[in-house]
């Protein structure tokens, strides 16, 4: 066990077998004052994110910023190339051909907004992340199949190995295991 102590503990992981059970457990854990908690499920559960105290994500903001940058960039590119860098006089038509610039401006808006949503999601989730301590729990492979997990991290101020373990077991967890870091 010395090796494990050296490596330290990331937290305690409790395993549940139904979405209702994990949501109930997450709510009770949050009510008990734990804040450094995390939950894992094989598919999105709206109530679960709320239960662990996560309400707002910044993804929409990043998407909006991407979209605005795309619109300005797309329009700016067309204006600069068509009116300043390479002005083409086609039958005396205006160099700033607003209606003709709509499609490309629109496409650039969508493109950068989509990158904003995609990369915003990945980067705020800190992915790609090939290694994470939770994967050390053998049964955690089922988090992507049919089981639900609740993890209380060891850096939570309320964390105490024995107490937290008893608390999690009392929530109806199928199993409570140590997460090596």
């Amino acid at each position: 066990m010395t090796k494990q102590e050296e490596k330290g503990t990331y937290g305690l992981m409790a395993e549940f077998d139904s979405p209702s059970a994990i949501v109930a457990a997450a709510r009770r854990t949050y009510e008990a004052g734990y804040r450094r908690i995390n939950a894992y499920s094989p598919y999105p559960i709206e109530e679960l994110a709320e239960a662990i105290g996560f309400h707002h994500s910044l993804v929409p903001l990043v998407t909006l910023i991407g979209g605005v940058l795309g619109a300005l960039g797309g329009f700016g590119l067309q204006y600069w190339t068509s009116a300043i860098a390479y002005p083409l006089n086609v039958g005396g038509r205006p160099l700033l051909s607003l209606p003709a610039f709509i499609p490309v401006t629109f496409e650039c808006t969508i493109l950068l907004a989509s990158f904003g949503a995609f990369l915003g999601n990945l980067l705020m989730n800190r992915l790609p992340q090939p290694y994470h301590p939770v994967f050390n729990v053998p049964s955690f492979a089922r988090a992507s199949q049919d089981r639900y997990f609740l993890c209380v991290k060891s850096d939570d101020p309320k964390f105490n190995d024995a107490e937290t373990r008893a608390f999690l077991a009392g929530l109806g967890a199928k199993e409570v295991s140590n997460v090596e870091s």
């Binding site: 499920s41 598919y43 679960l48 994110a49 662990i52 996560f54 955690f140 988090a143």
Partner: peptide, 8 residues
């Protein structure tokens, strides 16, 4: 890893 925050 199916993190609830990630899913959100």
């Amino acid at each position: 890893r199916g993190d609830a925050r990630h899913w959100h």
